[in-house]
């Protein structure tokens, strides 16, 4: 019988596997082709260890562990590393496993250090199979746009377009996850509230963010040789993401939001 008290015995070894995987991926280059294989192997080992806890916990509970805040944070970390491994396998970004590890570790540490949230019930609207994929892919896109915004700042400081070829694939991946998050949210909203899109404050900021990311791609298509405005739009997109994520909660309109789960 697996319970929350057993969580650190699975989570800490998984974190160790992922840290070794991230270290190997950071050394990934053409002279060391085996490092990428080792990075993926260690990451997958961590996923198996962590997934074993979820599977055993699921069996003990007799229901999917998706009902409380602590239970959903289990899935964030798993999906974070899974998405990171897929992106690393496809594009070999050396930093991606490290960034994924940091986000996953934050959620794991919250679960270890704040055991009171384990039994904090989710409200009925959040008890859905869409909850974890919707939130996880959004958070993953936030981390990717964070990296792209850093490149924007670096490019503006250096007054050079040399960062744009690296920012372009990042925005493509970030936009993919942002779009999947938005579309999964649409389907979930239809299931929970009866409407695909309600122009709720959070959805309004999500639309602004998505259009800003699309605008970056169209700017690059329009003038591939100009660098100032693309960099500025990378930073604007990241600022809009912050508004969408938590900034919207500080606005007066948040009180009437369907996304207020207090």
């Amino acid at each position: 019988m697996i319970s929350w008290s057993d969580f650190p015995y699975f989570a800490l070894p998984a974190l160790a596997f992922w840290a070794v995987g991230a270290a190997f991926s950071a050394r990934d280059n053409v002279r060391h082709p085996r490092t990428s294989g080792a990075a993926l192997l260690f990451t997958l080992c961590g996923i198996v260890v962590y997934g074993a806890f979820i599977a055993a916990f699921w069996h003990t509970l007799g229901r999917p562990p998706l009902r409380t805040m602590g239970e959903t944070r289990l899935w964030y970390s798993l999906f974070m590393m899974l998405s990171g491994a897929v992106v690393y396998r496809c594009w070999h970004y050396r930093w991606i496993l490290g960034v994924s590890l940091i986000v996953a570790a934050v959620f794991i540490l919250v679960n270890i250090l704040r055991p009171e949230i384990h039994d904090q019930s989710l409200m009925p609207a959040l008890q859905s199979l869409w909850f974890v994929p919707h939130v996880t892919v959004y958070i993953f896109s936030y981390s990717i746009f964070g990296c792209a915004a850093l490149m924007g700042v670096a490019g503006l400081c250096k007054r050079s377009g040399s960062y744009l070829p690296s920012a372009d694939p990042l925005v493509r991946i970030g936009l993919l996850f942002l779009t999947l998050g938005m579309l999964s949210g649409c389907v979930w909203a239809k299931q929970a509230w009866g409407s695909f899109w309600n122009w709720d404050p959070k959805e309004t900021w999500a639309a602004a963010t998505w259009c800003a990311a699309l605008l970056y791609i169209h700017l690059r298509l329009r003038h591939a040789d100009r660098w100032r405005w693309p960099y500025i739009w990378l930073i604007i997109t990241f600022a809009l993401l912050q508004m969408c994520w938590y900034g919207v909660n500080l606005l007066p309109s948040a009180a009437a939001s369907m996304h207020a789960y207090n």
Binding site: D168, L183, W227
Partner: peptide, 29 residues
């Protein structure tokens, strides 16, 4: 709406996993 969502998701997946984009080929950088 569902058809639009599915096409948009498929298009975004296909766009993100393309090996080389038009931007990359055009860019002097």
């Amino acid at each position: 709406t569902m058809a639009g969502i599915l096409l948009l998701a498929a298009g975004m997946l296909s766009y993100a996993f393309r090996r080389s984009s038009r931007i990359s080929r055009q860019s002097p950088h």
